[in-house]
């Protein structure tokens, strides 16, 4: 099949994926209260409204705090775990890796209910830090995958070379392994951040009634009717995700991070 047909197929699918977002972007520009496409007069009033109304600013702040802290926690759990499992094949390494991967292999509603019952039992239900810890543990998978990939890609001879040149274990870690892992840690953090920002069910079940996050707020708002401001939030979310992944793609090797081993350069 010719390269053009292949590209055409890819573009058609991408267009289908983009269609709802195009509509939503149009809707967000409506001058009036209603959701019309093409928009009923173009205005940015709903964008301004989002950043003025307390009703939306509070969930936005909550979401950002949760995402920032939870992804940091996820990285802090994932990094030592990846380092441990990298050099070992024992049962503990397998068990810990399995636990780190499990949240993504199970429907999230299960983890959400588990966290909900846990926080109800030990206290903490409805608190923002409970959401942070839950998200942190739930999202461990992402930095675990990226950091493990980074370690796998590292030539063992680099470490041996550092050792022959006089570096002890601690120095090898500080001057070689950690600097080489930085891009993988950063992308793991970014992945976790974006997913935490978008996560609904855990945030809802752990503290949905007291600590509203943006997705929870959107869902609550949907019950009272659709307004263009929902389009604004959606556009910002999609834009933010595209920005983050675009940056990773720009400064890192995204195909490699996704597991490709040979990628043709231009």
């Amino acid at each position: 099949m010719s390269q053009h047909l292949k590209l055409a197929y890819i573009c058609v699918i991408l267009a289908l994926l983009a269609a709802p977002l195009v509509i939503v972007t149009g809707v967000s520009l409506n001058a009036g209260q209603s959701l019309r496409f093409p928009p009923d007069g173009v205005s940015l009033r709903w964008y301004l409204a989002l950043f003025r109304e307390q009703e939306w600013l509070v969930p936005m702040r909550n979401s950002l705090i949760i995402a920032a802290c939870a992804s940091a926690l996820a990285v802090l759990i994932a990094a030592p775990l990846a380092l441990y499992a990298w050099e070992r094949t024992g049962w503990l390494a397998k068990l810990l890796t399995g636990m780190g991967m499990a949240p993504f292999a199970l429907p999230p509603v299960i983890s959400a209910l588990g966290f909900m019952i846990f926080w109800m039992t030990v206290g903490g239900y409805g608190q923002i830090w409970a959401t942070i810890v839950s998200h942190g543990v739930f999202l461990v998978t992402l930095p675990l995958v990226t950091i493990s990939l980074g370690l796998k890609a590292m030539d063992r001879a680099l470490i041996e070379a550092a050792r022959t040149m006089g570096a002890d274990r601690r120095t090898v870690m500080r001057t070689l392994i950690l600097p080489l892992l930085v891009p993988y840690v950063v992308s793991g953090y970014a992945f976790a951040f974006v997913l935490s920002l978008n996560e609904y069910i855990i945030a809802y079940m752990v503290a949905g009634f007291t600590v509203e996050t943006l997705p929870v707020k959107i869902f609550n708002a949907l019950r009272y009717g659709y307004t263009p401001i929902l389009g604004v939030v959606s556009v910002l979310f999609a834009g933010f995700a595209a920005l983050v992944f675009g940056l990773i793609g720009r400064f890192g090797n995204l195909p490699r991070l996704m597991g490709a081993e040979r990628v043709r350069d231009e």
């Binding site: 001879a157 041996e160 070379a161 050792r163 022959t164 040149m165 006089g166 570096a167 002890d168």
Partner: peptide
Amino acid sequence: PTHKRGMGMVF
């Protein structure tokens, strides 16, 4: 240990 031998090595 390796790091105290003071040898030079090319891999």
